[in-house]
Amino acid sequence: MDRDPDIALVALAVILVAGAIAAVVGGLRSDRRRSRIAGSTGAFSAAQVRGGEWSLVLDRTGDRQIQVIKEIRTITGLGLAEAKRLTDRAPSIVLDRVDHASASAAYQVLATAGATVRITEVGPPEPPAPGLCTVVLHDAGPKKIQVIKEIRMLTGLGLAEAKQLTDRVPSTVLADVDSETGAAAQARLTAAGATVRVTGS
């Protein structure tokens, strides 16, 4: 009879010790999870608001390529084939010349999907070489579909990429082309209702 309270006390002590060990292990796991999350986001936490222009570069898709392709399509508006091409040709630029907040948000999405990505700062565009010019679209105008068709014919871009140029004006349609090519492109786009400027000599 005297041993029953001793057994109960020993059992209680074992339960308390086991609970304390479980709490310590759980805390360590939580710390590791927090460290991993901090490691993926810490590069940007100190500078969420930055000026300038930035590019988001995909280095590797990881083991979940389909999920990464889905996220790239959501981020960029690209079609399935074009988004897959980006993953197949890694390292490749997913976003180019965007603000830091946009690049950072897209970074988080792709990193969560398992991709290896990085953000790089883009310097000012280089001036065109002497004798060459750049064709810049400022407004697609009322006949946007026709303008997209002309851009595709001039550049060889896919539908989604050509549409992106019309959505994100001002945008460069042709760069470092001779003045004759630039003037011809300007004439075609202007005839389709777009507002276009040719810069350079």
Rank of each mutant, 00 (worst) to 15 (best):
D4E: 12
D4F: 05
D6F: 09
I7V: 13
A11G: 06
L12F: 14
V14S: 13
L16P: 01
L16D: 03
A20Q: 08
A22D: 07
V24L: 12
G26C: 09
G26H: 10
G27Q: 09
L28R: 14
S30A: 15
D31K: 11
R33C: 00
S40Y: 04
S40A: 11
F44A: 02
A46Q: 05
Q48R: 12
G51Q: 09
W54H: 15
W54L: 08
S55P: 06
V57R: 06
L58Q: 06
T61S: 09
R64A: 09
Q67K: 12
V68T: 09
V68M: 00
R73M: 14
T76Y: 02
T76V: 06
T76G: 02
L78T: 03
L78G: 05
G79R: 00
K84L: 10
L86Q: 11
T87G: 07
T87S: 14
D88S: 15
A90F: 05
V98M: 03
D99Q: 09
H100Q: 01
H100S: 07
S104R: 08
S104Q: 13
A106K: 11
A106D: 11
V109A: 10
A113W: 04
A115H: 01
I119C: 14
G123D: 05
A129H: 01
P130C: 08
P142L: 07
P142V: 08
P142G: 03
K143H: 14
V147L: 04
I148T: 13
I148L: 07
K149E: 12
K149C: 03
I151C: 08
M153N: 14
T155W: 03
L159H: 06
E161S: 15
E161Y: 05
K163A: 15
Q164A: 13
R168P: 03
V169G: 08
S171V: 08
T172K: 12
D176P: 02
V177D: 11
D178G: 08
E180N: 09
T181E: 15
G182E: 03
A187M: 08
R188G: 07
L189K: 05
G193V: 02
A194E: 02
A194S: 02
V196K: 05
V196E: 01
S201L: 08
S201F: 08
